[in-house]
Design a protein around this nucleic acid. Sequence first.
DNA 1: CTGCATCCACTTTGATACTG
DNA 2: CAGTATCAAAGTGGATGCAG
Lengths: 220, 220
Amino acid sequence: MARKDFGQYCGLARALELVGERWALLIIRELLTHPSRYTDLLEDLPGIPTNVLSTRLKELEQVGIVERQVAPAPQRGVLYALTEDGQSLQSAVLTLALWGNSRLGEQQASEFVPPSSVAMAFRATFNAQAAEGLSASWEIHTAGVMLYVVITKGQLTTGIGPASPDPDLVITIRSAQMPTFQAVLKAIASGKVETNGREELLGALIEIFAPAELLASLGR
Amino acid sequence: MARKDFGQYCGLARALELVGERWALLIIRELLTHPSRYTDLLEDLPGIPTNVLSTRLKELEQVGIVERQVAPAPQRGVLYALTEDGQSLQSAVLTLALWGNSRLGEQQASEFVPPSSVAMAFRATFNAQAAEGLSASWEIHTAGVMLYVVITKGQLTTGIGPASPDPDLVITIRSAQMPTFQAVLKAIASGKVETNGREELLGALIEIFAPAELLASLGR
DNA sequence: CTGCATCCACTTTGATACTG
DNA sequence: CAGTATCAAAGTGGATGCAG
């Protein structure tokens, strides 16, 4: 373990010692959007070796970032989730992702869009002012995954999975591949979606989440 | 290089591919506070192997984060500096450092405080409101290093090195080891410093940079 | 002196196979 | 489902050498 240490009394160095290893922050991104079991993480992070996942989870658990939970009745098995300390990494993850977004370039054929990155984008672009006082919930179905966006009195929660309780509006986007966040908003803005529920809530998503550039590119 | 790729079209993954390798963000932290030559970096990042530094600098240069410059007349040699893209990593570095600060714990005897982390702390805690319209400059001398803090019409620039032009106030803190940012502010607040210049600017530093908790711990 | 390149021991990672 | 075991390949750390 001494090899990992930088020997610096510095927040950045300490952060890198704790979550700077390969795959660590991607695991944390997954857990920020949904508690996962071991095999979920293997699926969501294709390419991660099983032993590395196993090692990272142990390390992250040891330093109090990740928690093992025994899953409740219906599922059973082990669930990994973030502790409060782990959750507090969210702003750092969002800031790094924001920088990385500007250097994404064109999507390669070999690259897939992680659903959790779309959920994170909802958090990053949330316009709290536009949502002030609002309570509403959406469920977005696309490429075989489900994403929930719930706003309760202006507070956002979003992640992978079904909305609970029942969402006010279900939005279905037909797509074989997972679309990017931008593509999702574009589909919504251009009406290329199927809806089920309170359709008047469709436009609200755009108002609340579309960044200025995107609005411009949509001609609004 | 294919090994480094995560195969994800995601800002976080891309960021980690570009600056996620060992030592990379620490190099960037150094360059955020002062352009450096190769040997400066070796000194400022004790423990980094020469070949790793060399490799990182090449990689970071190749992806447009770092620039090689031929140093001007007096010094000669090669200077490494951040490009604009590199500078834009600052918010990510600050956010990560902020999280890491909360997990620093007690300083170990084997740990040193990197001067650049103190400069970064000045940026992180800068209270723009308190500095609105102000123009003033400080130079802090301690443990053999010099730190400048310059505010021009409310805009902060800070880093390692002398202030130019001449600072309004020079503050000397006697200390063998580099003190932490908190220790610097504490020394200033408690008057355990020597000054040279416009002494009335001493208190302003506290008003502008002390975070609320620190003010509380100082009994203000 | 600066700015690396080279060499070697060691560690981490990736890929695959296998087990309770 | 939730990991271990194994092994090759790549990366890292430490020391040294060397040209400009």
